[in-house]
C-alpha cells in the first residue's frame, strides 16, 4: 500500500473539519488516518491526513483540498522525509507470571506503563506507525483487550518550515520549450 501523508493548514474556524471530511466523502477519497490540532498560531489548525495512493488520486486530493476556502495550504510530505508518529494506549490482560516478560517487550519498543491492575497493564506507546504495528503484533500473544490509537502526525525533517503563506503546493510542471 502506497500511503501519502498530507500536511494541511486550515483556518481554525467552525465547520472546517466537516468541510474537509465532506470533501473526502463527496469525492469518494479514502482517508487512512486523520489527526487535527492547533498550531503555534491560534488562528491556524494543522491536519495530518494519510491517504492510500492506490485507491485515491493524491494529486486530485491536494488540488480539491486547496479549493476549500478555509484551507490555507496543502503539502505532501515525502516518504522518509518526515518524522511520523502515532500514539497508542493499549490495555493488555497479563498473568502475573509473565508480567516481567511483557515489560521487557514494552521496554524494547520504548513503551511505558501508565497504569496497572492485578490482571492488566496499560501501555503508552509513541512511535512510527510501523514500529507501533510491530508492538501491537507482539502484544497480541498476551491478550490485548482494549486499544485506542490516534491518527498519524508528521513533521518534515530538516530546516524547512511549512507556513500558511507562499505559493500553493500543487504546481504543474512547466512544459518544456519546443521549437515552433
Amino acid at each position: 500500500m502506497s500511503t501519502h501523508t498530507l500536511a494541511v493548514l486550515a483556518e481554525n474556524k467552525p465547520g472546517v473539519l466537516s468541510h474537509i471530511a465532506g470533501l473526502f466523502s463527496r469525492r469518494a477519497f479514502n482517508i487512512s488516518s486523520l489527526a487535527v490540532g492547533p498550531t503555534q498560531d491560534e488562528r491556524v489548525s494543522r491536519f495530518t491526513i494519510v491517504v492510500d495512493g492506490a485507491s485515491t488520486p493524491v494529486d486530485q486530493v491536494c488540488k480539491q483540498l486547496e479549493k476549500l476556502v478555509r484551507v490555507l495550504k496543502v503539502v505532501e510530505l515525502s516518504e522518509g522525509g518526515a518524522v511520523e508518529r502515532e500514539l497508542a494506549l493499549i490495555k493488555v490482560r497479563v498473568d502475573p507470571a509473565v508480567r516481567g516478560q511483557l515489560l521487557e517487550v514494552a521496554g524494547v519498543f520504548g513503551a511505558s506503563v501508565v497504569d496497572m491492575s492485578p490482571t492488566t497493564l496499560v501501555l503508552e506507546a509513541v512511535s512510527s506507525p510501523a514500529k507501533l504495528d510491530a508492538l501491537l503484533a507482539m502484544l497480541d500473544s498476551y491478550g490485548t483487550c482494549e486499544l485506542v490509537r490516534t491518527g498519524r502526525i508528521a513533521l518534515a525533517r530538516g530546516a524547512g518550515v511549512i507556513t500558511d503563506d507562499g505559493p500553493a503546493s500543487t504546481a504543474f510542471p512547466e512544459p518544456a520549450e519546443t521549437a515552433a
Partner: peptide, 15 residues
C-alpha cells in the same frame, strides 16, 4: 486561504 488564479504561465502558452 482563497486564491484566484491569475495570468497563465507564458511558457505553457508558448508550448
Amino acid at each position: 486561504g482563497y486564491q484566484v488564479p491569475g495570468p497563465p504561465s507564458p511558457t505553457a502558452i508558448r508550448a
